[in-house]
């Protein structure tokens, strides 16, 4: 097991648990993200879907929105940021208390998207540091949840390098393709 993949709690089956303080704090942080939704554009539609019953972001401990940057840890930048909006975004980010994380929701927030013109900020990373990029125009809620989980994982590891949500393959399709080619080999062999 590598250094970065430690369990937070060990020995819990014996009735007690040991961990490191830092891990414990990170564990607490990652499941209690208070979010500030900086919602501007089209991605707001998917952001609403993300909060609504079918996808339900609350399952991941990131439900409570706080409309004051001073009370929030996670800044969702949802939508295009224009040059005119950029100073406001920077102010909001500066007002947030540490530790603070930024999630760029959608292509426009990540790199400006196809609006390469006089008015659009080509990615919010020009102004504020970003932890997780979620590509898509707008991204599907599933990939946003992927991004949220990636962020939680990064918080647990204490890793602040920017990450990007990778495209996923459909497990059913993979299974189907594998089954067609080698029907006798099971997908996963269990040692235990």
């Amino acid at each position: 097991m590598s250094q970065t993949q430690r369990y937070v709690f060990e020995g819990s089956q014996q009735g007690f648990a040991t961990t490191r303080l830092e891990d414990l704090l990170n564990w607490a942080k990652k499941y209690s993200l208070f979010q500030y939704p900086f919602v501007t554009a089209c991605c707001a539609m998917e952001f609403m879907a993300l909060a609504s019953p079918r996808f339900d972001m609350a399952r991941f401990g990131a439900e409570a929105p706080r409309f004051s940057p001073r009370q929030s840890d996670l800044l969702w930048v949802v939508g295009t940021i224009s040059q005119r909006q950029a100073p406001i975004l920077k102010t909001v980010y500066d007002q947030m208390a540490d530790p603070k994380y930024v999630l760029a929701f959608g292509t426009c927030a990540s790199c400006g998207g196809f609006y390469d013109n006089y008015t659009t900020l080509a990615g919010i990373d020009k102004v504020v540091p970003v932890d997780v990029y979620v590509p898509g125009c707008p991204p599907r809620p599933e990939s946003v949840i992927d991004g949220l989980l990636l962020l939680q994982d990064k918080i647990q590891r204490g890793d602040r390098t920017p990450g990007i949500v990778k495209p996923r393959t459909d497990p059913h399709q993979v299974a189907k393709a594998l089954a067609e080619h080698s029907p006798l080999v099971p997908l996963r062999t269990s040692k235990s």
Partner: peptide
């Protein structure tokens, strides 16, 4: 079209 005038 691509000439931006950043505020920050």
């Amino acid at each position: 079209a691509q000439m931006t005038q950043p505020l920050v």
